[in-house]
Design a protein around this nucleic acid. Structure first.
Length: 563
RNA sequence: UGGGAGAUCGUCCAGCGGCAGGACUACGGACUCUGACUCCGUCAACCUAGGUUCGAAUCCUAGUCUCCCAGCCA
């Protein structure tokens, strides 16, 4: 059957979902993306978003957006706003299924009382240190708390008084009564409620006790009738507790947890803690700095939602620890941008070209296609005149072998314009450096094409000096010089591998005048240079700022490097 | 010296008893008004050792290595 041959390969989670539908276990999958609103989303979250929402879309199910906001001291409204914006930007919709764990606090409290009634939870008066000490170690069992055998009534009374605010922070916790000798540390009477007299970004001061993740997440999943609760591998050990809670309590539905390996990318750091450090210590300007792996940083850099979705699809989903090469990400960006980005001319490092036989007062306009393969993208007008800017790289007084750009006596094409031949150079008498290239153009090659069909190997981009707009162009490179900055040498730390050349600013580059009206956040391809995104933050009337998203592949540069 | 999980080209992902395949990278070549794109091609892997089997990446046994867990974080 040809359609099985063409069917996309399913990752192990999609295979499980498909099987659950096939066997009738579920009519459709219900998933959720459950961020804690304590920071900005990054590309690792994008993998999870694409997985959860992707499964919902592909199998005609649903995916909820749920904020796991059970720790009031870390969470802020600002983050819930930015997270929503980012998920939408990535191209996914939760429709009306926006939930907050904090909306379940009352129900969660009820479940906790139920656990106490069942004799499966107790109030512990030990200090945090004592609890830690009594938990035992990886190889030795823990010892029971002296408060473990309190009566149901006593526990209930104490727990209610915890809620009533009678006790200060840290004096008591509610613990599930499971097994202090369990080989799984998570199961050694986990804390499920702690006292925190803190203001919560949504519930205000209504509560002074807050449920822990392990108690909250599974019950939230159940209440939302989630079928497949997908999380990362570090929660593997927590699954036993997830199941214990749901199997112990009378719950509305029985979700299952599945874990996948989180995303790592070479030359990037993903941990929230490290990203905070980069911002607060001033190594980058802010959370949306184009060097950051945050969705807002990537967006400002010119990454499109489409490119990130493609990336998520390409890297797949497995349970094996992985580090994807950054080249894979860049390839996805180039691939999507090559298709969509309009072309334009800009000169990063200009050198003047004077067309000797082109009248000084003459100018003409070329109508050039915005995209070489997509006539539907229309055209733009590019003015041509006596003096032009070209790229310094595109001229060599002494051309190396294989160089087919401009050099004395050599003819090249100015893209969309004319063939020109270098007839002379002007040098700075002091340094001997070439300051101006004198050329002659062939009027018979108007439009960049010759009737006699003579072969021209070099085609250059250019900008008319008289008509040029000026833009600030920022060249971005990878933030770190080491593929795995976290794997620091003795006595070093990841910040020692920050790439000082990750940002280079070119304050005044000539660009073609059509760019002056470009809308912020659009990405264009500067021909022969790469993809550049009109910055949405620093763009202002009369000011153009471009961030380089990613360069073009450059086989000449590679060849020259090899020698 | 505990428990859980994982090991397939340099990287990521498939293959689930029957020819180890795709993508990225690298390297060739063709094409080209972007040294881009596109197209074609090449290099390149089953952690180890035993066993079962006509046949093992796949099943069994024993190792090795890596990751996760001792928050009143998620």
């Amino acid at each position: 059957m040809s359609d099985t041959a063409d069917a996309p390969r399913l990752d192990f989670i999609r295979t499980i979902v498909a099987e659950d539908i096939r066997t009738g276990k579920h009519a459709a999958p219900a998933t959720r993306f459950p961020p804690e609103p304590n920071g900005y989303l990054h590309i690792g979250h994008a993998k999870s978003i694409c997985l959860n929402f992707g499964i919902a879309n592909e199998f005609k199910g649903t995916c909820n957006l749920r904020f796991d906001d059970t720790n009031p001291t870390k969470e802020e409204q600002e983050y819930v706003d930015s997270i929503q914006e980012d998920v939408r930007w990535l191209g996914f919709s939760w429709d009306d299924r926006l939930y907050f764990a904090s909306d379940y606090f009352e129900k969660l409290y009820g479940f906790a009382e139920k656990l106490i009634e069942m004799g499966k939870a107790y109030v512990d008066d030990q200090t945090a240190d004592e609890i830690r000490a009594n938990r035992g170690t990886l190889t030795t069992p823990g010892t029971d708390s002296p408060f473990r055998s309190r009566t149901v009534d006593e526990n209930m009374d104490l727990f209610r008084r915890m809620r009533a605010g009678e006790f200060p922070d840290g004096t008591r916790v509610l613990r599930a009564k499971i097994d202090m000798a369990s080989p799984n540390m998570v199961m050694r009477d986990p804390t499920i409620y702690r006292i925190r007299h803190a203001h919560h970004h949504r519930t205000g001061d209504t509560w002074c006790i807050y449920p822990m993740y392990d108690f909250t997440h599974c019950l939230s999943d159940s209440m939302e009738h989630i079928t497949h609760s997908i999380c990362t591998l570090e929660f593997e050990n927590n699954r036993e507790l997830y199941d214990w809670v749901l199997d112990t309590l009378p719950v509305p539905s029985r979700p299952r947890q599945y874990e996948f390996a989180r995303l790592n990318i070479t030359y990037m750091v993903m941990s929230k803690r490290r990203l905070i450090q980069l911002v607060t210590e001033g190594h980058v300007s802010c959370w949306d700095d184009p060097r950051m792996p945050t969705l807002q940083g990537l967006r400002r850099r010119g990454f499109t939602p489409e490119s990130l979705r493609l990336f998520a699809e390409r890297i797949g989903v497995s349970r094996a620890a992985n580090t994807v090469e950054i080249e894979m990400l860049e390839a996805c960006l180039r691939e999507t941008l090559n298709d969509s980005a309009p072309r334009a001319f800009a000169v990063l490092r200009p050198i003047k070209v004077v067309i000797r036989n082109y009248p000084e007062n003459q100018e003409e306009i070329f109508e050039c296609p915005n995209h070489p393969e997509k006539p539907e993208q229309g055209t733009r007008s590019i003015p041509f005149s006596h003096e032009l800017w070209i790229e310094q790289d595109d001229f060599r007084e002494v051309p190396p072998k294989g160089y087919h750009r401009l050099s004395p006596g050599k003819e090249v094409r100015l893209r969309h314009a004319y063939y020109i031949t270098c007839v002379d150079v002007v040098k700075d008498p002091a340094t001997g450096a070439v300051t101006e290239i004198i050329c002659e153009y062939d009027p018979a090659t108007k439009g960049g094409w010759s009737q006699d069909g003579r072969k021209i190997k070099g085609t250059l981009h250019w900008v008319s000096a008289k008509h040029a707009a000026t833009a600030e162009i920022r060249l971005y490179d990878r933030l770190f010089t080491k593929a795995d900055p976290m794997d620091a040498e003795e006595g070093k730390d990841f910040k020692d591998y920050i790439n000082p050349a990750a940002l280079e600013t070119l304050p005044a580059c000539p660009v073609e005048p059509s760019l002056a009206t470009l809308a912020p956040e659009t990405v264009v391809q500067f021909e022969r240079l790469g993809y550049f995104c009109a910055d949405r933050r620093d763009h202002a009337p009369g000011k153009l700022v471009f961030n380089r998203s990613v360069g073009l592949r450059d086989s000449w540069a590679r060849q020259e490097k090899k020698g």
